[in-house]
Computed example of a mutant assay.
Amino acid sequence: MGNSLLDLEESGVSYGLEGLKIMIYGGNTLGKTPQAMRFPKPLLLMGESGGSALKGYKKLIKSKKVFIDTVKELTDDKNLDSMKDKFNTIVIDTIEDIIELFEIAICKQYGVSDVGEIQQLEKGNPNGYSVYRKEFKQQINLLTGCGYTVVFIAHEECVQIPTGENDKDGNAITKDFIQPKGSRGDKSSSRFIRDICDFRFFVMSNGIDKETNKTIMSKAYCVQTDAFYAGSRFNVKPVINPFTAENIIEAIEEAQKSSAEEYDAELVVYSRNTDNYTKEDYLVDIKPYMKKLYSLYPQLVLDIIENQLGSDKKVSDATEDQLTELETIYNNLVDLATERGIYVDTEE
């Protein structure tokens, strides 16, 4: 599948909010979600009840299925233009809550209370962490690949990291370091989110005004220090003070211009990457996996197809409007083969 590398054209530096992935993390009551909801045409996907003090479009995500159905609705090619007319920004609050829903779902599927028990439960069972992380990553990639500005809200956590020095007994000296919650492990879903984001803002309190006894608006950092994690792919200024949506947007656009100047590149508006795959392309690539896996795991294969196309549907029943569903089926079959150590000859 795919176009020839010879057809590629040199690209410039993206300008504007469209297609950006932004992480905003920090402690409670710092204005993370209220400011994210001041981005253009926002939709708030809430991982837990709340948001009653916020004006705007909001949807409670109560389960993995609800999240997947919501992503499907937001990314369906048939409705994408209409969706993007109504929503420019998708705010996910919090990303830890959504990750937990994927963990809960796979535990229910295998009848265990902890993801780590899945592989131990029965010989041949997959690594539970690997499975739910792949499913989560797949949904996030779908959502972030359609041109929305996706803002991930996360809490902070304080971890111990080595300073590179040892004490008099030879033990490593550590220090406090603040980072997005759950992102310490290289393979964690939270780490995946922070790594794909174009801008990663750490929000910190400015304290209380001693004269008025009112909270001073927070500030946001986008350059990492010895004390906390932050960063960007662009030449962004290190501190945005006060932390407001307007100031964040201005800083992003200035950073994009600065990066374009550094690389002597043109500023270009977002353009969705469409590889022009056809239904026939997907059917050809799916066929060898179906042939190999159905004889070994018929119910798992049927579940993969049913989850995308509905009950009693065959892959060949898919329409030209269901290319996203066919891509998901293909990816899930490849994942199944990989997890079970099954070699599939795609040249047959």
Score class of each variant (00 low, 15 high):
I24D: 07
I24Q: 06
I24K: 08
Y25N: 08
Y25P: 03
N28T: 15
N28C: 08
N28F: 15
T29F: 14
T29D: 12
T29V: 13
T29S: 13
G31Y: 03
K32Q: 08
K32E: 06
K32T: 09
T33G: 00
T33F: 04
P34F: 09
P34R: 06
A36V: 14
M37I: 12
M37R: 00
M37N: 04
R38V: 04
F39Y: 13
F39Q: 01
F39C: 03
F39P: 00
P40C: 14
P40A: 12
K41Y: 11
K41W: 05
K41S: 10
P42M: 11
P42R: 06
P42T: 13
L43I: 15
L43C: 13
L43M: 14
L43W: 06
L43Q: 10
L43H: 12
L44C: 10
L44A: 11
L44I: 08
L44H: 03
L44F: 05
L45V: 01
L45S: 06
L45A: 10
G47Q: 07
E48A: 14
S49H: 05
G50A: 12
G50C: 09
G51K: 12
S52I: 11
A53L: 08
K55N: 10
K55W: 05
K55M: 09
K55V: 11
G56D: 12
G56V: 13
G56N: 06
G56M: 05
G56L: 05
Y57N: 15
Y57R: 15
K58G: 09
K58A: 08
K58Y: 04
K58M: 11
K59D: 08
K59R: 13
K59V: 15
L60I: 07
L60D: 01
L60T: 02
I61G: 05
I61P: 01
I61L: 07
I61N: 06
I61T: 06
K62I: 08
K62C: 04
S63V: 00
S63K: 01
S63H: 01
S63Q: 02
S63P: 04
K64H: 09
K64G: 04
K65D: 03
K65F: 01
I68L: 13
I68H: 01
D69Y: 03
D69A: 09
D69G: 05
D69L: 11
D69K: 07
T70H: 00
T70V: 04
T70F: 00
T70K: 00
V71T: 02
V71K: 01
V71W: 01
K72C: 05
K72G: 09
K72T: 14
E73A: 14
E73M: 13
L74W: 08
L74C: 11
L74K: 03
T75G: 07
T75L: 06
D76H: 14
D76W: 14
D76N: 15
D76T: 14
K78D: 10
K78W: 02
K78H: 05
K78A: 10
K78P: 02
N79Q: 07
